[in-house]
Design a protein around this nucleic acid. Structure first.
Lengths: 195, 195
DNA sequence: GATTTTTCTTAACCTGGATTAACTGTTTTG
DNA sequence: CAAAACAGTTAATCCAGGTTAAGAAAAATC
């Protein structure tokens, strides 16, 4: 089944008994989405944490001129959600949609809270995940000030090796924070970037 | 005592019994530092999470030209540390030093791990903290791409109202990611920013 | 498979912020 | 309190990356 990827990810950090695994899986639902389908709109409350078992999601926000700024890509094996809205259950600022047809595992906020109560070691699992994610956003926040567009492109390639060849330049530009025109110019001026 | 600030912060999220509080406090040590004193150098392993009870710390990294990029200020009531190094116990990339004479509470990585085992609800407390911090770094990462220097200055003022008037422009410039020359020009061109 | 929509490219021109440098306070420190 | 070190100011010049526009190529849709 496609729960395996998620169970593996969990097994790296905590050990679940047979019963715990069964309880956990009872809290999970699956969802298939088509390319371009929205999973969350700005202003909505994010009621599900999503785990990608195939395909790829992205989260982004729009500025007042309609420019997209991509916060995260979530290929296979990644968690996705609007953390702010998930935590507070208030309307968030992110859009989440599918870049390709995708399969997801969902756990609702309600079930997540149950899980924390009934199997407290999930606090540990999600603490570790939050801490790792924190480190990577701390790093990215600094890099976004410090690095040039070319250097940010190189970091993108390291972070999402599986996506480098399957995303459009437009998506990559919206992630590294440049215009598609500039990214095109840059890739032609520096052909060695297209490894 | 100056443990009160920290106990208050904890009480907002978890309830400790008398015994648990005593155990927790036995894991904490205090430290006084002078202005400019280093608490961590690049390449060192960060062995303590630090809670500021008075004064103010900052964490930053240096680029190859010696430019400082400030990741965080930690005035009274804030936690400080090099998350990457704290988690992995590998050499980190941050410098941490004191902007003013400061008083700290320290908990060693070793005691922190004991705490998680002996009082598991600390997993919950630090999960909540990590999640909130994650949200704020996610936001800052995007803002650092999307906002102009002026807008980043305004966000800085909102985030650290207590520091706006006591930090030098040089520190603020290193936080918002501009040169001190440009910040000076900007503040003179837009006097309304100095509210 | 023709048409519409989207993505990519190229090029001219523009701008926010960096760089350099020189000068003027202010703090530190001996 | 003198000297040195540091912080802030101003101004001229420069450049990474944005903007606008228009055409070419590719992909999605009927």
């Amino acid at each position: 089944m496609n729960h395996d990827l998620l169970l593996e990810s969990i097994a790296k950090h905590i050990h679940l008994t047979e019963d715990e695994r069964t309880l956990f899986l009872s809290y999970i639902q699956t969802k298939k989405v088509r390319k371009k389908q929205y999973l969350l709109l700005e202003g909505e409350v994010n009621r599900f944490a999503m785990f990608v078992t195939s395909g790829c999601l992205r989260s982004y926000n729009l500025d007042e001129n309609g420019f997209q700024y991509i916060q995260q890509f979530a290929p296979e094996g990644w968690w996705m959600g609007d953390m702010y809205s998930l935590i507070t259950q208030e309307p968030g600022h992110l859009y989440i949609d599918a870049l390709f047809d995708s399969e997801l595992l969902l756990i609702s906020k309600t079930n997540l809270e149950r899980l924390y109560k009934e199997i407290p070691k999930f606090n540990y699992y999600f603490r570790i995940l939050a801490e790792k994610s924190l480190v990577s956003y701390q790093t990215r926040a600094m890099e976004n000030l410090r690095l040039t567009a070319k250097e940010r492109y190189e970091k993108f390639c390291l972070r999402y090796p599986s996506l480098v060849d399957c995303l459009s330049q437009k998506q990559v530009a919206a992630y590294i924070g440049v215009t598609p025109e500039f990214l095109s110019k840059m890739l032609h001026a520096e052909p060695e970037l297209k490894s």
